[in-house]
Every structure is written in structure tokens, then in C-alpha cells.
């Protein structure tokens, strides 16, 4: 474990807490893409299949459980909770995310580290996480102005993988046989997808103005 990775995990946790705060405090999920939340639930369920087979550390296991439970809880809340469900932007959140799931799964069947059930699902989860934010970014562009908590949620979500890239660079130079091309390249793609959001987020912060993405 290094400082970059720990900072990344904490930033990821913060993004989830901000989202939970937004939904719980405002009893609303307006501006939040249910499709992105569903993709994240699939990402964690597919990636943490080793939760019961490979014990790494208490920290690792606890965080896996937290990520799985929180992502499933958010999807459940957006689908079932009466008040929250009513505020869901159903007509704006129309990205066909099933195509993303299919494409990532086919790609994982082609490109993986080992052709085993667990490794293919791990690669699938890495590819899917890279594109999971797309429905959310599309929704933000369509809904114009973005409320603060939603903006902060997306910001921390993007920042966590950028910190992981620093973690991979650090491990590459400090560990003998460190090769994690699948995660590295996917992480670069994932972070690049946030580039324009980060740009407009920085502008809104600098000008102390409301964050609004050009349509």
C-alpha cells in the first residue's frame, strides 16, 4: 500500500459518501444517472468475486464489502425508494448502457491476463469501470446546471482513478515485476473521459460560478 493508492481509495470512499449524502439529505437523486450506478454495482460484483476466496487484508476485505453494499444500496434506493424514485430524471437518463456491458464483456473475453472465470470477470470489471461514468456525463450535459453535491460526487469519482495512476507509476518504479497494463490503460481512458468535466469544474471553482456543462 502506498500513499497514492490510500488517497485514491479514500477519495473513492468520499465520492460514495457525497452521493449518499445528496440522496439522503435532499431525498432526491435528480442529476444522478441510475444507469451509471447500475454499472458500478456490476463493476464491484464482477471484480470482487475473490472476496471469499482470497484474503489480502482486513482493509481490503472491508473496503470491498463497503463498495458492493453502497453501490447496490444506491441502485435499490433509486429504483424503490418512493421519494427518491420520483426525482429520478428518467427521460434524460437514456444512454443505452447495456451496449457498454456487452462490449466490455466481449473485450474481456479477448483481452485478459489469464483465461479463467475470475480473471475474465476482473478484466470485464476494469473495462466497464472505465466507461461506467459515460451515462452520468451525458445526463449532466443534458440537465445543464449541476447541483454542488452532484458536481463534487463526479469530481471525487474522477480524481480517485487519477490517484491510482500515480500509484501505478510509483509501483512501476519501486517494485521489480510490476505489470498491470490492463488496469493502467483502462485507468488512463477512464480519467481522460473526465477531462472536460474537470476543465469546466475548475472554471466554475475559479470563477466561483455555478457548474454548467455546455450542451
Amino acid at each position: 500500500m502506498n500513499a497514492f493508492r490510500l488517497a485514491g481509495d479514500i477519495t473513492h470512499l468520499i465520492s460514495i459518501l457525497v452521493l449518499l449524502l445528496k440522496i439522503y439529505a435532499t431525498k432526491s437523486c435528480s442529476g444522478i444517472s441510475l444507469k451509471t450506478q447500475e454499472l458500478y454495482a456490476v463493476v464491484f460484483l464482477a471484480r470482487y468475486l475473490d472476496l471469499f476466496t482470497d484474503f489480502i487484508s482486513v482493509y481490503n476485505s472491508v473496503m470491498k464489502v463497503v463498495f458492493i453494499l453502497s453501490s447496490v444500496a444506491i441502485v435499490w434506493c433509486m429504483r424503490r425508494h418512493r421519494a427518491v424514485k420520483r426525482s429520478y430524471d428518467k427521460e434524460l437518463d437514456t444512454f443505452r448502457h447495456y451496449y457498454l456491458v456487452g462490449a466490455c464483456f466481449v473485450f474481456a473475453l479477448l483481452v485478459h491476463e489469464k483465461f479463467t472465470f475470475q480473471e475474465v470477470f476482473w478484466a470485464f470489471s476494469i473495462y466497464l469501470e472505465a466507461v461506467a461514468i459515460i451515462p452520468q456525463l451525458v445526463l449532466l450535459q443534458r440537465s445543464g446546471n449541476v447541483d454542488n453535491l452532484t458536481g463534487q460526487y463526479v469530481f471525487f469519482l474522477g480524481a480517485y482513478r487519477a490517484l491510482y495512476i500515480l500509484n501505478w507509476i510509483y509501483r512501476y518504479f519501486t517494485e521489480a515485476k510490476f505489470s498491470r497494463w490492463i488496469a493502467c490503460i483502462s485507468g488512463l481512458v477512464q480519467t481522460a473521459l473526465y477531462a472536460d468535466f474537470f476543465y469546466y469544474y475548475f472554471l466554475s471553482w475559479k470563477n466561483n460560478a455555478k457548474l454548467n456543462l455546455p450542451a
Binding site: D54, I56, N60, F67, W122, Y164, S179, R180
Partner: peptide, 10 residues
Amino acid sequence: AAAEAGKDEL
């Protein structure tokens, strides 16, 4: 097992 297989990250 998972550690050297590179699956020690979240």
C-alpha cells in the same frame, strides 16, 4: 495468491 497475481488493489 491474489497479491502477486496483481489483485491486491481495489
